[in-house]
């Protein structure tokens, strides 16, 4: 099964992402009220990331349609996320604003919650440059 053979790497990515976020100096310095849940949708993979007071407390890997609630979604093709997951992303793949304005990324759901947490979300997504692509 495709899902079964790919699951360990997805789980490993989720653990590395959580570790990177929970030890990141910027997020830990400014994340006292960084609390939200969001879907990172990479088409071939998806994750619901739960953050409470600046700490990633859970990541659901490839959740079913109604398995895990989330407040907003960041959706893009697998290829776009792979571009995000490089140390120095190419132009337009260097942030959620640029990829939303100029590529296939979409910001959906409670965008207000995204804006309320924008500083730390921006940093968290940039951690992909270190952790690598989620897909």
């Amino acid at each position: 099964m495709t899902t079964a053979t790919r699951a360990p790497s997805a789980r490993a990515w989720a653990e590395a992402f959580a570790e990177a976020s929970n030890t990141d100096a910027e997020i830990q310095a400014h994340g006292k009220y960084f609390t939200c849940s969001y879907l990172l949708d990479a088409a071939e993979r998806s994750y619901v990331i739960q953050v409470e007071s600046g700490r990633v407390t859970g990541i659901a890997v490839d959740p079913g349609p109604l398995d895990v609630p989330y407040q907003f979604a960041i959706r893009a093709s697998a290829q776009t996320w792979r571009e995000f997951g490089t140390p120095v992303p190419a132009p337009m793949f260097h942030g959620i604003w640029s990829a939303t304005f100029r590529r296939d990324m979409r910001l959906e759901g409670e965008v207000l919650v995204l804006m309320q947490n924008l500083r730390c979300i921006t940093r968290q997504i940039e951690l992909l440059r270190i952790v690598g692509s989620p897909v």
């Binding site: 120095v88 924008l118 440059r129």
Partner: peptide, 19 residues
């Protein structure tokens, strides 16, 4: 309902090059 200072600052962050 959002922190305007941070929305403006982080909303323009991606306008800069990673280099």
């Amino acid at each position: 309902h959002a922190n305007a200072a941070q929305v403006c600052a982080s909303g323009t962050w991606d306008l800069m090059a990673p280099q």
